[in-house]
Amino acid sequence: MSLESATLWAAAIVTLGVYTILYRENPISRIFEHIFVGLSAGYLIVFIWAQNLEGKWWKPMVHEGKWYWIFAPIVGLLFYFIYSRRLLWMARLVMGLFFGTASGYFFRQFFPIFSPQIYGCFKPLRADASIGWGDVILHNWLFVIILLTVLSYFFFAVPHEGRFGRNLGRSALLGRWFLMIAFGAMFAYTAMARISLFIGRVQFLLNDWLGSLIPWFAQRGT
């Protein structure tokens, strides 16, 4: 049996083994699940070493005389003092460093990510040379109505009583309907994605695996 053929068989057996979970929880699917997790972890370690640590840390430190890189793992190992009550403060030092860095990154990214979306909410509500009335009503008016009604749904400071409150309540109700439609669309996308993945595996089983045994299957559907 060639390596390619063995790979095909292994992939087919693993695929079918994992799908046995659809009937009920069983040791076969569990075994393959654990193999997958173990392989992924092993692959990650090898890849981090081969693609990052070896070139960026080991080579400069050992072969290029940049001895100060030895301090990098020492700083990293400080995390493990979380298991010592007496030396916990040393773990807190690096944690604080990481929290601070992460906060800095977040602040740096916040405005480039969100400000264009805020500007994008200000859409023209009248037709002009660049946009016709059809597009204004279909896109911009609809967008602004949905935006305002959904925002009103999350406006909890005013009780839905009195003239203003009752109108706010109606707007919030409409906003809730728009949210439900959006969630429905998102769920449909989720179903679509899951089915795509399933089709991908069935394509493999029929076209690649069975197709390697019976050529008729390899020619179908591609």
Binding site: I195, F198, I199, V202, Q203, L206, N207, F217, R220, G221
Partner: peptide, 8 residues
Amino acid sequence: VTWQILFP
């Protein structure tokens, strides 16, 4: 899914 892959 099988039907449509084999006879699309």
